[in-house]
């Protein structure tokens, strides 16, 4: 499934990487501890998190994740947004919480 389809189905707000929404999503990963995401997420995963610190971009790049969904309607710090744009990382915002976002992704077939 493409990021674009997920954005549409979950009604996400895209705040960075609009031009890379054709990227393929291979699965989902949810977590707020950066060390855990570094250790356990897989290439192509869509990452669901509460974290808005700019380190999330570095983590997503190093693990080649397809994109980041920030939950609970939180707005990322300025540095995070700047870095996301530089690094061509799609970042989306959902007003729902991790449980609901992961639930919906799972429902539409992201595993």
């Amino acid at each position: 499934m493409k990021i674009r389809d997920i954005v549409k189905k979950l009604g996400l707000k895209v705040i960075s990487g609009e031009e890379f929404l054709e990227r393929e999503v291979t699965g989902g990963y949810a977590g707020d501890l950066l060390s855990d995401v570094l250790a356990n997420s897989k290439k192509g995963n869509m990452w669901v998190t509460l974290q808005i610190h700019q380190n999330i971009i570095a983590v997503a790049i190093s693990k080649e994740l397809s994109g980041i969904i920030i939950v609970n309607g939180r707005k990322p710090e300025e540095g995070t947004l700047k870095k996301a744009k530089e690094e061509k990382m799609p970042v989306m915002i959902s007003n729902l919480l991790t449980y609901e976002v992961a639930g919906r992704l799972y429902e539409i077939g992201i595993r």
Binding site: G27, A30, Y99, A102, G103, Y106, E107
Partner: peptide, 12 residues
């Protein structure tokens, strides 16, 4: 189960 899968399964 990882967080993602746990949320997904219970939600489903």
């Amino acid at each position: 189960s990882p967080m993602f899968e746990s949320c997904g399964k219970l939600s489903k």
